[in-house]
Structure formats: C-alpha cells, structure tokens
Design a protein around this nucleic acid. Structure first.
Ligand SMILES: [Mn+2]
Ligand SMILES: [Mn+2]
Ligand SMILES: [Zn+2]
Ligand SMILES: [Zn+2]
Lengths: 144, 144
DNA sequence: GTTTAAATTGAAATTCATTTTCAACTAGGT
DNA sequence: ACCTAGTTGAAAATGAATTTCAATTTAAAC
C-alpha cells in the first residue's frame, strides 16, 4: 500500500472514531512509514527523538496501538519481550524466519502451509481467525 | 515419557550439573507432572499452596526454568503475557490451536507442515533450530 | 556423627516493558 | 473568540520475570 493511501486510511479512521488529527500523530506516522519494519515502541521513540521531535514515549505507544487498531500496522512478538510493529501490506500476509545469531528477520509466504493450517484447524472443528508461524534458526550469513 | 523416567532424568541432570536434590524440587516436579499442561508459574505456585506445601514463588519459577533446561519441560507463550510450561513428550513435537473465546488449547502435529517449514527455510538458506506455530480461532464449543 | 563448603530457599526488592493517571494543552466545531 | 472533548507527556502504576541476600539445607569430606 502506498504511503499516501495509508495516511488517508488513518485520517479516515480518526474521523470515524471521533478522534483528532494532531501534529504528533502525523509525525509518528511519517516516521513509522519511513523507518524499517519490525520496530519496537522504543525504537520508534528514539528515532523521533534523534529527529527534532520531542514526542513523549506514551504518545508513541498509544499511537502505534491506534495504527494496529486502524489496520495500517501489525503487532509482532519475536520472543525478546518487546512488541514490534510493521506496516500492513493490505491483504498480504507473511510469516517470519528469524536468525537466532544475528537477529536478522526474513519474511516469507507459503500458500501450501496456509492451506494446511486451515485444513488442520477444520479437522479439529476450529475456524481460524489468525495464526502465527515463526521459524527460528541460523541465517546464511551466520552459518558460514 | 513415564513419570518415573522423567524424574530420573531430572535427578541425572541435577547430578551432572552439580546441583542438589531438594524437598522443594521433588514436590514441584510431582505437582508439575500431576497437573494439566500449559501451566504458568503462578498456576503451579497456587496449586502447590492449595496442597500443604509452603514453597516460595521464586523457587517455583527457578525450578520450572530448570525443567526446561533439563529438557523435561517446554516453555510456551500464547500471547497472554505469561510463560507457560508443559511436560516434554520425549522427541514428540506438537503445535497448538487456541480458542480466542474460551482459551481452550488443542494440540496437533502435521508432518506435512513440518516438512514445508524445512523446505521454506532451506530456500532462504536458513537451518531451522525450532519453530512456533499457533492457530488462533474459535473452537467447536464456542462457535455454536 | 560432625564439620564444612557450596547450593538452595523465600521474602522482599528490582527490573523492564507496558499501561494508566492527571493537569495542562490543543483541535475543531459553533 | 469560545467551548468541549480529545490529546499530550511526565510521572506513577502495573505485572510478570528476575535478582538479592541472610538463613537454611544438602551432601561430600573428615
Ligand atoms: Mn514482517
Ligand atoms: Mn502443548
Ligand atoms: Zn544471522
Ligand atoms: Zn472455545
């Protein structure tokens, strides 16, 4: 999804929810879209500080939660005790390969796995709402 | 794995690590093996209290970590912010279906998914060490 | 059995990410 | 300009995990 589209989706969300568009929210969204993926609240907060923006940590935290609610961001948990966020690619879904040595994160999507998940859930009478698949191992760079 | 075997595996572990066998560790292991799966530290601590054992929370916490180190227990994280533990079924592996309504947890194993995971990782040059697959949805009991 | 050194225990304190509080401030409608 | 509801951010609170440390227990040595 284009940055412009994401921004307007957030604006619409604020409007329909009776929330306000503020300088802080604009700055946080800009930085979020500009920065790399899988950022923690702390990461984004520090990036904003390094710029000139004096935005409070609580505001960054609350705004990232708003992004997730709005659907323009996804929360991720890779087991380091921090919640991370990444921009949603519209309807695109992906899972993650995580290097246990250097922390590198690679995204992948495999329709065969997705399909089997639905099948397995169905066999147990479950309807899947979401899932989480993370493969932890050693990346090519670290296994030399 | 039988309870007796698990106990002897833990005893061996303590010996080889220069650790000591204590009344508390025995009680915690007994309760752990007797209680259901996917327990948090708090869960097990409360169960022990309900019995007559006055064991400290820190001891339960440390002992569960020892179980995981020793290989007789596995840590699990189902997104409620608590670390859960379950007894290891030897070399058996399984993943989880979690009902987002009632919290019910169903275990499953699908060799086809396991194989595809290895394939996908290999395609990215990764060697998998472990993985995590959780399917969140609505169980049959809750979808009526 | 006694001594001894090292490990263990558990209550309390600490850590650390997350979340809440609340008084001052701001957005946006009238 | 005024009003009201929403927002901000520093500080406090929360909650699970972890550490501290003095008292205690284990198990090996004597
Ligand atoms: Mn991603
Ligand atoms: Mn399980
Ligand atoms: Zn790596
Ligand atoms: Zn259910």
């Amino acid at each position: 999804m284009s940055k412009a589209k994401t921004k307007s989706q957030f604006k619409d969300f604020l409007l329909t929810q009776g929330l306000k568009s503020t300088r802080q929210r604009e700055l946080i969204l800009d930085e979020f879209l500009h920065a790399g993926s899988h950022l923690s609240t702390e990461d984004l907060y520090l990036r904003l500080r390094r710029g000139n923006s004096r935005i409070g940590y609580a505001t960054v935290h609350r705004t990232l939660k708003l992004f997730a609610e709005c659907g323009i961001a996804e929360q991720r948990h890779f087991g380091d005790g921090q919640t991370r966020y990444e921009a949603s690619d519209c309807d695109e879904h992906h899972d993650h390969l995580i290097c246990v040595v250097c922390g590198k994160i690679v995204e992948f999507e495999d329709p065969r796995i997705e399909e089997l998940q639905v099948e397995v859930a169905g066999a147990h009478g479950f309807s899947i709402e979401r899932h989480r698949l993370e493969l932890y191992g050693c990346c090519p760079g670290c296994s030399i």
